[in-house]
Computed example of a mutant assay.
Amino acid sequence: MSATTIVLAEAHEIFRKGVRTLLDAETEFRIVGEVANGLEALEMVERQQPDVLILALRLPGLGGVDVTREVGRRSPHTQVLILSSYSDEAHVVQALKSGATGYLLKSSSAADLIEAVRTVAAGKRYLSPVLYERAIEAYIQFMEESDDTTLDRYETLTVREQEVLQLVAMGCTSEEIASLLGISSRTVEVHRRHVMQKLGLRNRAALIRFALRRGIIPLED
């Protein structure tokens, strides 16, 4: 079985050399190129046509997201593994949408690096364990909030609680709701808490999504 060919693109030399040392220790991998900026990464990938491009998000010349998009056009079979210190959802989603197969945090272990390269080389999605756990949690929360039984719970709300739900979802403050309904702000907070508990919602964003799905407030164009 031939070795998995790899191009490594990372601006920081010390970190890049460290990653290379780890990969060179594995006979199943072969580094065919090592670069420090985005434009060089594209040139190297186009020339070498590697199985995997290990790519930093922050690179001089051309950023990792743009490089990833171009790699998809110039070397479609090359799998891109993003290596980044950014763990927020925005960076991860942007990288994956641009065509990356995997996303590995720079704080990951050597074992995670090896597993990540093996996984993306096989054409399978890879996320750092901590990112995978977050994705699962977000999916579970989404499913809980999307559960049809949650919609049925709306019928358990009192008329006043339904009114408070609608006004909160519309963006009204507790003071504004109190004025509109002729009750105290404290009473509004009590109703709001009961609504959240009865519907099994965790925050205002979830409440708004529920209201949109239920048709309590219109979906703006």
Results as ranks from 00 to 15, higher is better:
Y103C: 12
T187A: 15
L23Q: 05
Q79L: 02
A178H: 09
K124F: 09
L180R: 14
H191D: 07
A116D: 04
Q94W: 11
H12Y: 12
L157C: 02
T27G: 08
S85T: 15
V65K: 08
G215M: 05
R192E: 07
D147A: 12
S185P: 05
S184F: 10
R153Y: 06
E137Q: 14
I136H: 09
Y103W: 12
V67D: 00
S107M: 14
E28L: 05
V67K: 00
C172Y: 15
M170Y: 11
G102W: 05
G200Q: 01
L81P: 11
A3T: 10
Q162C: 07
T156P: 11
V80E: 00
E28P: 03
G102P: 07
R204G: 09
T4N: 06
S128R: 06
D66I: 00
D221M: 13
I208R: 14
S85V: 11
Y132R: 10
A56H: 08
V130R: 13
E163L: 13
V67P: 00
G200S: 03
L167Y: 08
S85K: 08
L113G: 02
G171T: 12
D221G: 14
T27Y: 06
S107E: 10
A90D: 15
A9Y: 01
D88T: 01
D221K: 15
T68W: 05
T21R: 11
I82E: 04
V7G: 02
T21E: 14
R209S: 14
S185E: 15
R73N: 10
S84D: 04
G33Q: 01
A56L: 03
S85M: 15
L105C: 03
Q94T: 14
L219G: 05
S184K: 08
L212D: 11
A211R: 05
F142D: 10
Y86T: 12
E13F: 10
V195C: 07
M196N: 04
V164L: 08
L83Q: 07
L151Y: 02
E144C: 09
Q79R: 14
V67W: 01
S107W: 11
L199E: 09
D112K: 12
G215W: 04
R47Y: 02
L39Q: 04
S109G: 10
E13R: 13
T187G: 07
E133C: 06
E175C: 07
T119N: 04
R209P: 03
E189P: 02
I177F: 08
T149P: 01
G182H: 13
T101N: 14
I6A: 03
V32E: 00
I177W: 05
L199R: 04
E89T: 13
I14D: 11
H191S: 08
A211C: 02
E189C: 07
E176H: 08
D147P: 01
V195T: 07
E175W: 05
G64I: 01
E43C: 00
T173K: 14
G99C: 07
V130N: 14
L157R: 09
Q197T: 11
M170V: 12
S146F: 11
E176V: 09
I54P: 06
S109R: 14
Q79A: 12
D148K: 13
N37P: 00
L81W: 07
E176R: 06
Y132T: 05
V188N: 10
L83E: 03
E89R: 15
R214D: 08
G123F: 06
E28W: 01
L53Y: 02
R58C: 11
R214S: 03
R204C: 08
G18T: 05
L219W: 13
A36Y: 03
M1N: 09
V32I: 10
R16A: 10
V71G: 00
